[in-house]
């Protein structure tokens, strides 16, 4: 990974801003340049995530969600702005920011157990301790007894469960999740949502969860950030006051419906605005 040197920040900008925030995304933007074409994937994105919070980001396909998470993970350099974790500016990727990717990214040559132990082994943790943690997470994700299988013979849902276990077993400061259930069918998706919430209730990790599914964003999050496309930008922050622990049944409550209607309104408004802008642009 080639981490470019980040511009030095004035001291005053650094300190008061990040107080109390576990993760701070500070006016981050990203412009891709390809064959002379400039694509603004992310424009002036600014928000905080507090310790132990479950924050979801909701946005349509191509609005820059993956780009945002990759910048936070340190895999992509922002064009401007920066990311702070525990009041320290990040540069490059690290084990403190775990990530579950949109695509299946289990190492196919390692068994389920070896996949989960990958980060622990890198840390140089002794084998007995490693095995203990692996067993614990296998149980947590309900894959007891699947430890010696290779990813090739797992279903999509099982693969993502292992990917989550692998990220959690490494005990990161924050967990970044990029549409982890995006490729799963509706039924499996629901099961996985509940499972992840159960796991989160036990660990209270700080989680930043990206999705394009409104129900998922509301069901999982303490707060939902609504993102719009072209250029990708946060448009609204919606607190989700639904009490925890949440079960699937909250999806049919009046409160849930109200929140969903609110977000739908917001999204519709934004898409109309975007459509009108394109139309007026054509007239010029």
């Amino acid at each position: 990974m080639t981490a470019l040197p980040l511009k030095d920040l004035p001291e005053h900008d650094r300190q008061p801003a990040a107080q109390g925030a576990k993760l701070r995304i500070h006016h981050v933007s990203k412009v891709f340049e390809q064959k002379g074409q400039r694509v603004t994937a992310l424009e002036d994105t600014h928000f905080d995530v507090r310790e132990g919070e479950f924050v979801t980001i909701l946005g349509p396909s191509g609005c820059g969600k993956s780009t945002l998470l990759k910048i936070i993970a340190g895999l992509t350099e922002p064009s401007s702005g920066y990311v702070m974790l525990n009041n320290r500016r990040i540069s490059g990727p690290g084990a403190d920011r775990g990530m579950v990717f949109q695509a299946y990214t289990l190492f196919p040559w390692l068994t389920v157990e070896e996949n989960i132990a990958f980060g622990l082994k890198l840390k140089g943790m002794p084998k007995t301790q490693r095995q203990e943690i692996v067993q614990q997470y296998l149980q947590l994700i309900g894959l007891d007894g699947f430890g010696s299988m290779y990813p090739n013979s797992l279903s999509g849902g099982m693969k993502q469960r292992v990917a989550i276990a692998r990220a959690l077993a490494n005990d990161p400061e924050v967990l970044l999740m990029d549409e982890p259930f995006g490729a799963l069918d509706a039924q499996t998706r629901t099961v996985m949502q509940e499972l992840l919430l159960q796991v989160w209730e036990k660990s209270h990790k700080t989680i930043l969860f990206v999705t394009h599914d409104i129900d998922e964003a509301i069901f999982m999050g303490d707060r939902v950030y609504v993102m719009t496309a072209r250029p990708g930008q946060l448009k609204a922050e919606i607190p989700i006051p639904i009490p925890r622990p949440r079960e699937f049944s909250v999806k049919t409550t009046r409160e849930f419906m109200r929140l969903k209607a609110e977000i739908l309104d917001l999204i519709r408004e934004e898409s109309w605005k975007a459509a009108n802008e394109i139309r007026s642009g054509e007239c010029l």
Partner: peptide, 8 residues
């Protein structure tokens, strides 16, 4: 990239 996020 996955290995990087796991501390590699």
């Amino acid at each position: 990239d996955t290995s990087y996020t796991l501390g590699a």
